[in-house]
Write a protein that binds this DNA or RNA. Structure first.
Length: 431
DNA sequence: TGAAATGTTGGGGCG
DNA sequence: ACGCCCCAACATTTC
């Protein structure tokens, strides 16, 4: 039996500039890329048409075909990773497993178990930084602690980025395991069906990024990058993206830094998934009215900007960033519903769902996060229209019945809801 | 990357 | 010419 080196793909679904693959090809022989449809994750998905699964499947197919052209293959398995690796270790003579680090709590635990299993069988397990430019301990303040304020973190990040820009590198594909193609499973074989939702193409539109700071706040223009899902599943290299945009638009680069800031915070403190960054905010007595929550989910609050956003999300798996802030402010402040409810709904619906960013941004909206700005930040859904959708273009696109008698009246009055939120936060924080 | 309330200033209309 | 009021525009404070 030939000795092989496995490169385990997870959230790095590309062959270009992939650190684990580069390392595997550099240090190993007969490199076989594999992907495991992890039933621990898939079983949690309610929707068997989940677009994210289609996205992954589609990308894997591309990778498989590219590998076939190199006389190799992608090996796709289905099951619990531990079981899969047990089986693989019997099927193959495995020298080592290379993979890129995934920082989420489930992934960390899974990888630890896989490592123990493999090392027990004398198989080395190597993991690499790939998903971020800087790992959690690479950007630290003068006291050697991790930053808790974005601006300070960003300045440090930028300085280090400019001092030693990341390198783009491709693997030596000659080292791939040469084989006839191994059958590639269809979506149905893993219990899913293709989505009808359209998936954003992978392209870096330089002109769009160059004017990002001027256009990004107008949802009708739809001038955000839609690259979130590609970052989520690693179909784009963060190094390549950051290098390309660095000179084009600082505001856009900042968004990438926010991503790493939230990942870094969560890495240092897994508690943030369930708890407010500022613990006194866990005292807020959320109203958590189930009926109002349902109206928010469905886009039937009677506030056109909120409803437009939620309907866009429900229909497309995407919501414009400006509108995400508005609906989040509305849920937490106007309705006084726990930010974790909103976070969970976004997690279910967003194609570009990313635990750290979702959590960080929801905490930002709820006022419980790292941001110094306190809870007073309450968006006025009406004036947000005046500022960012004056012609009602975005609103009308998603809420065509707006202005007719079929459109519901507001479920809460803005002025009194605002005052209620202020009062509730104030007394919770004083207690 | 908030909005409302309150304060300040200055120009114009008008007696 | 002057004081007064009104109000818009802007600045600051407060929630």
């Amino acid at each position: 039996m030939k000795k092989i080196t496995i490169c385990w793909l997870r959230r790095d679904l590309r062959l270009e500039d992939n650190t684990a693959l580069n390392q595997a090809c550099q240090n190993g022989q007969n490199v076989l890329p594999i992907f495991i449809f992890d039933t621990n994750i898939l079983d949690e998905l309610e929707d068997k048409h989940d677009a994210r699964v289609t996205f992954i499947h589609k990308q894997l197919k591309n990778i498989h075909q590219a590998l076939i052209k190199k006389q190799s293959t992608l090996l796709v398995r289905f099951g619990k990773p531990l079981d899969v690796f047990k089986m693989l270790s019997e099927e193959f003579d495995i020298e080592a497993v290379y993979t890129n680090r995934d920082y989420e709590p489930y992934a960390t635990k899974r990888d630890k178990e896989v490592r123990v299993l493999l090392e027990g069988k004398n198989i080395s397990f190597y993991d690499f930084k790939d998903q971020v430019i800087f790992d959690k301990d690479e950007i630290l303040n003068k006291g050697g602690k991790h930053y808790k304020v974005f601006t300070a973190y960003k300045n440090d990040w930028l300085q280090k980025f400019n001092e030693s820009p990341p390198q783009i590198q491709n693997a030596d594909f000659q080292k791939l395991y040469k084989t006839t193609p191994i059958d590639f499973p269809e979506l149905e074989a893993i219990g899913f069906s293709p989505t009808s939702i359209s998936l954003p193409p992978l392209e870096i539109d330089k002109e769009k990024i160059r004017v990002y700071d001027k256009t990004r706040n107008y949802p009708a223009l739809d001038k955000t990058s839609h690259l979130g899902i590609h970052l989520r599943f690693g179909t784009i290299s963060i190094r390549k993206l950051a290098l390309e945009v660095a000179d084009l638009n600082q505001t856009f680069l900042n968004e990438l830094i926010w991503r790493e800031f939230f990942m870094m915070l969560l890495c240092h403190n897994h508690r943030l998934i369930q708890r407010a960054f500022k613990s006194q905010y866990d005292k807020i007595p959320w109203r958590n009215n189930e009926e109002e929550f349902q109206k928010w989910c469905k886009g039937k609050t009677g506030y056109p900007m909120v409803d437009a956003g939620m309907r866009e999300l429900n229909k497309t798996g995407y919501m414009h960033n400006r509108v995400r802030m508005i609906v989040a402010s509305f849920l937490t402040k106007h309705l006084l519903i726990d930010w974790r409810w909103g976070e969970a709904y976004f997690a279910k619906k967003l194609l570009d769902y990313e635990l750290a960013s979702n959590n960080g941004n929801w905490q930002w909206a709820a006022g419980t996060g790292t941001d110094a700005q306190p809870y007073f930040r309450i968006f006025n859904p009406e004036s947000q229209i005046k500022k960012f959708d004056k012609e009602l273009e975005y609103v009308k696109k998603w809420v065509p019945e707006y202005g007719t008698d079929r459109y519901p009246s507001p479920i809460v009055d803005h002025k009194s809801a605002r005052e209620r939120a202020l009062k509730t936060y104030k007394s919770a924080l004083e207690s």
